[in-house]
Amino acid sequence: MITGAVHSWDLATAVDGPGTRFVLFLGGCPLRCRYCHNPETWRMRDSTRRSVEEVVAEIAKYRRFIEVAGGGFTVSGGEPLLQPDFVEQLLREVKALGMHTALDTSGYLGAWATDELLADTDLVLLDIKSWDSDTYREVTGGQIEPTLTFARRLDAIGKPMWVRFVLVPGLTDDPGNVEGIATFVAGLSTVERVEVLPFHKLGALKYAALGIPFPLADTPTPSPELLDRVRAQFRDAGNAVH
């Protein structure tokens, strides 16, 4: 029996894929994004072991409601690809229920996603956190190239993508950094939309509760003018922006 480290789940609308979604948050993440608003999901040991059967049984309770709402199932994190065997079987079982499936990932562990896992994934929500490699390292502690390689692989197999970019003043907002992502994404034929997500501090209380300093406590949220400029850069490159 395959089990996974499950942190929590929720029903969400229009933020984790189309329609109303059953969103499963898994524990464990190899990155430490400075703006992460779910620090409680960083470590697998802080989550609960659940079997695929247990999770699918919970999802099935909401199947009819989700179908009527034009939604589906999204596996998120943490980073779901840190548990590829669990995610692969889970997606297979959910697809057997006839539900739309989505994978929410940074792409950093994209090489861990098997062809079988991706075959049962209808949509990939891909977070491209920066284009400039130094900025990416500053934002996440990791490297950008695995995400770009994964994006190219998804494009090559015709997998639909929604690309997400978190806009942080003074960190990810450099025009050249935005232009790099916008141009790269515009060259991918299966990207259906780009979501420019403004940085927020809604997770600050979680950091305080965990006794962890919030790295961007003094960083302002993006102004409307900055948001307009960045969204315009993505549109001008030929992307559909939401």
Rank of each mutant, 00 (worst) to 15 (best):
V75L: 03
D46Y: 06
I181D: 10
T3G: 12
S47R: 03
T221K: 07
T183L: 02
E54G: 03
V166E: 01
P160C: 05
S76C: 06
C29D: 04
L197E: 11
V23L: 04
R45T: 15
V191K: 01
L118Q: 04
H200Q: 08
G72I: 05
P213W: 10
G211Q: 05
S76F: 02
D127L: 04
V94F: 09
G187M: 05
E116F: 01
G158L: 11
I2E: 14
W42F: 04
S76H: 03
G158M: 09
T74S: 13
P39F: 00
E58P: 04
E195L: 03
V241G: 00
P224T: 11
P80E: 08
F165E: 01
W42S: 00
F65Q: 13
V52H: 12
V163L: 10
E53Q: 15
E138Y: 12
L91A: 06
V6N: 01
V68R: 12
D120L: 08
F184H: 07
R21L: 06
I181E: 12
P39K: 01
R49P: 02
I59W: 11
L91M: 15
E93S: 11
D174G: 14
M1Y: 15
T135P: 03
D85W: 08
K159P: 12
D127Y: 13
R49F: 14
D115G: 09
W131D: 07
L154F: 02
T219G: 04
A186D: 07
G98I: 08
E88R: 03
E195Y: 10
D218N: 14
A14N: 14
V194Y: 08
L171G: 02
L11A: 14
L226H: 11
E192S: 02
V75R: 00
R229A: 15
T105P: 00
T190V: 12
